[in-house]
Design a protein around this nucleic acid. Structure first.
Lengths: 185, 185
DNA sequence: GCACACATGTAAGGCGTTACATGATTAA
DNA sequence: TTAATCATGTAACGCCTTACATGTGTGC
């Protein structure tokens, strides 16, 4: 999956692993995250596969930046991935639900404390979506053609809308769950 | 994580890998899923770690069932895990959002088709939560003490409520997104 | 006789996380 | 001079998925 995120961004313009890390942190991180270690190793593998080429940029003295450029093969791989629609649901993973599922033998107050911690975290996450996210991304975004920016923003906004809807749902469920547990005594 | 799910179920009663697979499929699968291959290898590793013991049940002639039992060490590990609350948010992974994020250069109709496929899948998932899920689990559930069943059901129900809220949110977002895209032409 | 559920494993490969490791530039 | 940011990598380990592999019991 990371492979296609890297192809997607490099299809806008050539970049270094460091640039990609920063852009991912400010854009896709809320629905797909990656550590720099994985980014660098994946870029190297993709170059071996012929999807990218790289050259060391020595314009600034000693600071060596390895700039990656997408190849026609890479663009074809990206297009092929886009053409093939998702036809299944992912296997959701939610550690909090696992913990809650096995919480019948825990003290109610202990479980409530844990849910309140999660409530605070999700509240913060929602505030991030409401105030920071779009501006943040637009500042970090790679240069794109003027005429396509509007259309791109429509799609980016949809992912932000999802994040906001997700956090609102999560908070509502946490509140409902906390209430039910409080009345359980 | 699977380790604690296995400890959680084996804390109710001794079981085989096959039993655990079936119970997981009918209970935690919607928030944590595992293939039988991972279950068997994890059980073996846990026995090495002293969290479980196993014995081959030869009561039925040739059909060999390896029954795992939780040890005091295993119960201590489960209790320690329960006591340590979750204090962070997981890194969400959502392939559909990745695809949507890089969809500005795709044909609108192609993207709409993909979203409609997802809509159908999530609709099915929601119907599962509304009709089948609880009954299904109660039939597969391991025997527990009468007095604790009511409290356990409260917690199980909370995970089902989450699933339902999640699918409802997802469907609402898909509808909104489909509408916005339809009006984009 | 055949299909389906029961039952248990191994192997390979990819993905993701944490830690280790290094070094330059820039602003306070 | 010291901290933050820029910049790039390697190593180890564990988790997850897919595929391979085998065999019995039960009901139609």
């Amino acid at each position: 999956m990371l492979k296609y995120i890297l192809l997607g961004f490099l299809n806008y313009s050539p970049m270094t692993g460091y640039d990609l890390k920063r852009i991912i942190d400010h854009s896709t991180a809320h629905f797909w995250h990656a550590y720099h270690s994985q980014i660098y190793t994946t870029l190297a593998r993709m170059e071996d596969e012929g999807l990218l080429t790289s050259e060391t940029d020595d314009s600034d003295d000693k600071l060596s930046r390895r700039v990656y450029t997408i190849t026609p093969t890479g663009q074809a791989a990206l297009a092929a991935w886009q053409r093939q629609p998702l036809t299944s649901l992912p296997h959701g993973k939610n550690e909090l639900l696992v913990r809650l599922f096995f919480s019948a033998d825990r003290k109610t107050e202990e479980v409530l404390d844990e849910l309140r911690i999660q409530r605070r975290l999700h509240q913060q996450q929602l505030e991030l979506y409401n105030h920071i996210y779009l501006d943040d991304y637009l500042n970090e975004a790679p240069p794109t053609e003027q005429q396509n920016v509007a259309r791109e923003m429509v799609f980016w906004q949809m992912t932000i809308d999802f994040g906001r809807a997700y956090e609102q749902m999560y908070l509502a469920w946490l509140d409902e769950t906390i209430n039910k547990l409080t009345e359980l005594d």
